[in-house]
Amino acid sequence: VGDQVLEIVPSNEEQIKNLLQLEAQEHLQLDFWKSPTTPGETAHVRVPFVNVQAVKVFLESQGIAYSIMIED
């Protein structure tokens, strides 16, 4: 199991704000291929294997929908 690319769908401005804060966490080494800008629009982010669980827990705790787009 390696890195994953998640497709994330924020449903409101609050969730977009939370994702932008997540993007700013440099220690997570997230690679946003497509940043969140509009509710209902997908964002794509590559998550290093060591941080996959932490990111998924965060998304679930914020009620942000996501799916695994690419499993490496």
Score class of each variant (00 low, 15 high):
residue 58 F to R: 02
residue 31 D to L: 09
residue 8 I to R: 00
residue 1 V to R: 14
residue 20 L to P: 01
residue 23 E to G: 13
residue 24 A to C: 08
residue 72 D to S: 14
residue 37 T to L: 12
residue 13 E to Q: 10
residue 47 V to D: 00
residue 3 D to P: 05
residue 21 Q to C: 11
residue 69 M to F: 11
residue 22 L to M: 05
residue 69 M to V: 11
residue 45 V to H: 00
residue 9 V to G: 02
residue 29 Q to C: 13
residue 6 L to C: 02
residue 50 V to N: 11
residue 59 L to C: 02
residue 69 M to I: 10
residue 36 P to R: 02
residue 55 V to W: 01
residue 40 G to M: 06
residue 44 H to Q: 13
residue 22 L to R: 02
residue 35 S to H: 11
residue 60 E to S: 05
residue 64 I to K: 00
residue 47 V to H: 00
residue 20 L to I: 09
residue 61 S to A: 13
residue 53 Q to T: 08
residue 69 M to Y: 12
residue 59 L to W: 01
residue 17 K to I: 09
residue 1 V to N: 14
residue 58 F to Q: 03
residue 6 L to M: 06
residue 9 V to A: 06
residue 40 G to R: 04
residue 7 E to D: 04
residue 21 Q to R: 10
residue 29 Q to A: 09
residue 3 D to Q: 08
residue 66 Y to F: 09
residue 57 V to Q: 14
residue 39 P to T: 04
residue 25 Q to K: 11
residue 10 P to Y: 04
residue 68 I to W: 04
residue 14 E to D: 09
residue 52 V to T: 06
residue 27 H to P: 05
residue 47 V to R: 00
residue 16 I to N: 01
residue 57 V to H: 13
residue 52 V to Q: 05
residue 45 V to P: 01
residue 42 T to Y: 05
residue 27 H to C: 10
residue 57 V to E: 14
residue 19 L to V: 05
residue 69 M to L: 11
residue 61 S to K: 11
residue 40 G to F: 08
residue 9 V to D: 03
residue 13 E to K: 08
residue 10 P to N: 01
residue 69 M to K: 07
residue 12 N to M: 03
residue 52 V to C: 05
residue 21 Q to N: 11
residue 4 Q to L: 14
residue 11 S to P: 01
residue 43 A to N: 05
residue 29 Q to E: 06
residue 51 N to L: 08
residue 70 I to Q: 10
residue 50 V to R: 07
residue 4 Q to S: 07
residue 12 N to H: 03
residue 52 V to E: 03
residue 72 D to F: 15
residue 72 D to C: 15
residue 53 Q to Y: 08
residue 16 I to D: 00
residue 72 D to M: 14
residue 27 H to D: 11
residue 34 K to P: 07
residue 12 N to T: 14
residue 71 E to P: 09
residue 45 V to Y: 02
residue 18 N to Y: 14
residue 24 A to P: 03
residue 32 F to Q: 02
residue 51 N to H: 14
residue 50 V to Y: 10
residue 34 K to Q: 08
residue 72 D to Q: 11
residue 29 Q to Y: 09
residue 32 F to T: 02
residue 3 D to N: 09
residue 42 T to G: 05
residue 64 I to C: 01
residue 50 V to H: 14
residue 68 I to F: 05
residue 43 A to E: 01
residue 54 A to S: 07
residue 67 S to L: 06
residue 44 H to S: 09
residue 72 D to Y: 15
residue 56 K to S: 04
residue 30 L to I: 10
residue 40 G to W: 06
residue 64 I to S: 00
residue 9 V to C: 14
residue 20 L to V: 07
residue 53 Q to N: 12
residue 42 T to F: 05
residue 47 V to K: 00
residue 7 E to M: 13
residue 19 L to Y: 01
residue 8 I to C: 05
residue 48 P to T: 04
residue 19 L to H: 00
residue 15 Q to P: 00
residue 6 L to G: 00
residue 67 S to R: 09
residue 30 L to H: 01
residue 67 S to W: 08
residue 17 K to E: 09
residue 10 P to F: 13
residue 38 T to F: 10
residue 2 G to L: 09
residue 63 G to R: 05
residue 53 Q to R: 07
residue 16 I to G: 01
residue 57 V to N: 12
residue 57 V to F: 13
residue 28 L to W: 13
residue 66 Y to M: 01
residue 72 D to I: 15
residue 24 A to V: 07
residue 65 A to G: 07
residue 21 Q to F: 14
residue 42 T to D: 02
residue 34 K to I: 12
residue 18 N to K: 14
residue 36 P to L: 05
residue 51 N to C: 08
residue 27 H to K: 08
residue 26 E to N: 12
residue 25 Q to N: 14
residue 21 Q to L: 12
residue 11 S to G: 07
residue 22 L to D: 01
residue 62 Q to M: 14
residue 71 E to M: 07
residue 12 N to G: 04
residue 47 V to M: 02
residue 45 V to W: 02
residue 4 Q to Y: 15
residue 66 Y to K: 00
residue 35 S to V: 09
residue 15 Q to N: 02
residue 1 V to L: 09
residue 32 F to M: 04
